[in-house]
Amino acid sequence: MLDKADGQIFTGSVRLVHAVGMHARPAVKLTKLAKKFQAQISVRVAGAPEWINAKSVAKIMAMRAAHGSTIEIKASGSDAEAAVAALVDLVASDFPDGAG
């Protein structure tokens, strides 16, 4: 589910299948994975007014995305496409242990 937008911005969206939504442990995994990329990465619950820095664990925990919500991801920078793909995969696969 990757759309190449204009220029260097890559976006993706993925449904949060985790039973209790974006609680602490998934938030840590998402942040750790995001930090492995150089790209600037932002996420939001679909339709939310503000994008959140995917590398800020405090902000990701505070976003309180609920089970079944859709997470939108956008990234820009040299490895942005890989970053979006990796984060979509992490959420879609329900934050497996060892990921991130």
Binding site: V28, K32, K35, K36, K55, V57, A58
Partner: peptide, 11 residues
């Protein structure tokens, strides 16, 4: 502690 360690893990 959790947030500091998360940040530290990224180097």
């Amino acid at each position: 502690a959790v947030m500091a360690a998360t940040e530290a893990a990224g180097g």
